[in-house]
Design a protein around this nucleic acid. Structure first.
Lengths: 292, 480
RNA sequence: GCCCGACUAGCUCAGUCGGUAGAGCGUGGGACUUUUAAUCCUAAGGCCGCGGGUUCGAGCCCCGCGUUGGGUG
């Protein structure tokens, strides 16, 4: 069975796969013999699922976390195989899938979602994707009822409208024998301020905040003309994109008086602000407290 | 199923699981996690926020300049991450951390004071340099000295609370005799080198490294090919994310490769055993060299590692789960060399500190039928100071953290005749997302046209002999 | 009937390489000669069909409707 925590060599009945029909046309499917999908594009490519492809193709039930934020959060929470981590809310499960990939096979994700429907869908997804053994998902309003975990997790991730209300309970859930980490994900600076205040009051240290955006770049060859007095009045070659390779008819040398050069620029549809990422450390308890 | 707490919503899940049992490979026997061991490499964070990296060898004295000195034996067995004060006699005691030290009074009214009547005058401080030096010589604690300095500052009470906090912070950075030993991990080391000696790690910033790790789908049980010119930064980060499971083969150009950062990670032997390295000329020997290598004994002193020959055979078996390149050489040449040994539907990720060094590679990979989803990436990364009523960006690091080319390797299909523009049926299953309409792959076809038998992709790859089991299916043939 | 796209400039278009701030026509200005005008040069013109619902207080979100193109009955 294909899963997000292990590659398989071949496609099998019942596997989740990602149907590729172009960069903006990725679609998750379950392979079932005897069934068809239509396609009017000549060919498709079936890809092995990865958390990154899942993030690009999953059904949105909420706004989701994307790869840039997911990546830096994972690093700064110091996650690796064996880590135990709590997450709230589960949302559409974009980050959850990536978390499970990183902490498997010896770690565990405790994920909490207060919306009943979304919690159920996420849970069903984990099971369908063969990830249930790595994740415990609960429908629970953690701001009101807390996480219900004690001295258990290495890291906590809060993606909540009022994260400051969950700080005390998150602290309780974090283990106390080693330094642990917390991240809060909030779009607005006022949320950050209140969260930082709560973190400080609860004894978190090393509070830092970041923003991280992904910039994707286009590369294309353009033909540009050269300024030349002798030719200044003659018709100029058109400035036009020229693409190399794949045997296209555009694969022609530059006309006299012009030169082909690579033009690199950021894609204009790049996402803007996502959220502020607030990180904090909870130091291990002093030894006196350890003794009891 | 899971041995973890069950997902019943109502009852509080109270779980206390012993720490050691899930991390057998990371925690050496008879040692608690997060405890400093003899032989560990550690990072010491000083009050000035300067950092020093060193190895804790027993029975040694560590000199921290004006911040004091201590015996390594006093640190062994103590927890990481905790600030320690060097008290008289060189003993280390856990330093108290109070929020007010760093924050100032959060609720203070900023308007209750200002600098209108404060003048820059050294005479505001009544203590002389000699008197302060004497205090230090008498082994007064940092806190005592700071208190003395504040009480000797004639204008201190005129300052705003925020200004006082900043003043105190400066004094703490100068006079406190303490340090925090930080456990070394990939994120910490990346940050350390990026700030201290970025050339060593080829200007690789933590956010780009993080993106590299997810893009390459690095995880336990990965089987990866790596070309690493970052002093081992990339390899160390990859090994950390694999947790001792799987396999990493590092190919390098010189006869031996500097992977110092891997050593600094304090990996257990089990993790180090998943790493093998091999020079390019042993992995890809010229025909005339072949006999020479075959004749000569493997000269590696560490016989627990596979021989070059075994590693070479391993590489040529192909089917790797990914390729990661962070090279100062032409990245294109490295990708051409190693990509053939990567399985299809697997990531290829290439790092370089300069975007423009990757543009030709990006163009040619986009033009190639062997890759899809080819992307040229940089990041915009900005840290902020967050203090009550004093939140602001600390610096702008956009555009200087390196760039990545990320792609997915696929099996190139046969060239499509131009007549094949019509709809084709692909023998795969239906959607899992019944409710989703946008770009739905299509509805079950009704016609009885064609056989639904799944097509095994044929590998028309230019890369012969990589032995991959074909995963992505390219169904380019007509059914009509 | 069902399915899949596309709706931004006065009009019409824009590709499975991660090509939707890119163009063409038309329009204005200039040069030129072949002057009921042609050719060349150049300039101006862009915020995305309508409505609703949802996501955290960031949409690569969803639904409906309209217009339009294609496919299939």
């Amino acid at each position: 069975m294909s899963t997000f925590e292990r590659y398989s060599a071949t496609i099998a009945e019942g596997d989740l796969a990602i149907l590729y029909r172009g960069h903006s046309d990725l679609y998750p499917i379950v392979i079932k013999s005897g069934e068809f999908v239509n396609n009017n594009k000549g060919y498709v490519i079936i890809l092995h699922p990865t958390p990154e492809l899942w993030t690009l193709s999953l059904p949105h039930r909420t706004q989701i976390l994307y790869q840039a934020d997911i990546s830096i959060i994972t690093s700064l929470l110091r996650l690796k195989p064996g880590s135990r981590v709590l997450e709230s809310g589960t949302g559409s499960g974009s980050f959850s899938h990536s978390l499970i990939r990183t902490i498997a096979p010896t770690g565990h994700l405790h994920t909490f979602e207060y919306h009943e429907g979304r919690a159920a869908e996420a849970k069903a997804e984990f099971e369908a994707h063969g990830l249930a053994q790595f994740a415990t998902s609960q429908c629970r309003d953690v701001c009101k009822d807390g996480f219900g975990l004690t001295n258990l997790v290495d890291a906590a991730f809060l993606d909540l409208p009022a994260p400051w209300e969950a700080v005390a309970s998150a602290k309780q859930a974090l283990r106390k024998d080693v330094a642990t980490r917390l991240c809060s994900f909030s779009p607005c600076i006022e949320q950050v301020a209140r969260t930082v205040e709560a973190l400080t009051q609860h004894g978190f240290t090393n509070i830092e905040m970041y923003e991280c955006l992904l910039r994707e770049h286009d590369v294309r060859n353009v033909t540009i003309h050269q300024v030349d007095v002798m030719r200044s009045l003659a018709p100029r070659p058109k400035v036009a994109a020229v693409r190399p390779g794949k045997g296209q008819e555009e694969d022609v040398p530059a006309a006299p008086g012009s030169v082909i050069t690579a033009l690199v620029r950021p894609r204009n549809d790049a996402r803007g602000h996502t959220s502020f990422l607030t990180f904090a450390t909870l130091l291990p308890q002093a030894e006196e407290a350890d003794e009891q | 199923m899971s041995a973890e707490p069950q997902p019943t919503p109502a009852p509080a899940v109270s779980a206390v699981t012993p720490a050691a049992d899930t991390t057998p490979l990371e925690a050496p026997a008879a040692s608690k996690p997060g405890i400093i061991r003899a032989g560990d490499h550690v990072l010491l964070v000083l009050p000035s926020e300067n950092k020093r990296m060193l190895q804790i060898k027993p029975d040694t004295t560590v000199e921290l300049g004006k911040f004091g000195k201590f015996q390594t034996n006093a640190l062994i067995g103590k927890p990481y991450g905790v600030p320690y004060e060097i008290v008289k006699g060189g003993e280390l005691v856990r330093a108290e951390v109070t929020p007010e030290d760093a924050l100032g009074e959060a609720d203070s009214d900023v308007k209750d004071a200002n600098n209108k009547n404060i003048f820059d005058d050294n005479a505001n401080q009544t203590l002389t340099h000699e008197e302060i030096a004497t205090l230090k010589a008498e082994q007064a604690s940092g806190h005592e000295i700071i208190a003395k300095i504040i009480s000797s500052h004639s204008e201190f009470d005129k300052k705003t609370e925020f200004s006082k906090a900043k003043y105190i912070k400066k004094k703490r950075q100068t006079f406190l005799r303490q340090f925090t030993p930080v456990q070394l991990d990939a994120a910490t080391l990346c940050d350390f080198y990026f700030n201290k000696n970025p050339a060593k790690t080829k200007e690789m910033r933590i956010d780009i490294l993080s993106l590299l790790l997810t893009s390459a789908n690095v995880r336990a049980h990965s089987r990866l090919l790596i070309y690493d010119d970052t002093q081992g930064m990339v390899t160390a980060a990859v090994l950390e994310r694999m947790g001792g499971f799987g396999e990493v083969v590092v190919v390098h150009e010189a006869l031996s490769q500097n992977l110092d950062i891997v050593r600094y990670m304090n990996f257990p032997q089990a993790t180090l055993d998943t790493l093998t390295t091999i020079p390019v000329n042993r992995a890809f020997p010229l025909p005339e060299e072949m006999e020479l290598w075959e004749a000569s004994a493997d000269t590696r002193e560490n016989k627990t590692k596979p021989s070059f020959r075994e590693t070479r055979d391993n590489i040529h078996r192909g089917g790797f789960d990914g390729l990661i390149v962070a090279s100062t050489a032409d990245p294109h040449s490295v990708v051409d060399l190693l990509s053939p040994y990567v399985a299809t539907s697997r990531p290829v990720v290439v790092y370089h500190s300069a975007l423009n060094m990757l543009t030709p590679l990006c163009q040619s990979m986009r033009a190639s039928q062997s890759y899809i989803l080819v992307n040229l990436l940089t990041t915009w990364y900005r840290p902020y100071q967050v203090l009550p009523q004093r939140t602001h960006p600390t610096m702008n690091m956009s555009g200087h953290g390196g760039a990545l080319v990320v792609a997915t390797k696929v099996a190139p299909g046969p060239a499509l005749p131009s007549s094949l523009t019509k709809q084709e049926l692909i023998a795969v299953g239906s959607s899992t997302q019944g409710s989703r309409k946008r770009s739905k792959p299509a509805n079950p076809a009704r016609g009885s046209s064609g056989s639904p038998a799944p097509k095994k992709a044929k590998v028309g790859d230019e890369n012969e002999g990589d032995g991959m089991e074909v995963d992505p299916v390219e169904a380019g043939s007509s059914q009509v």
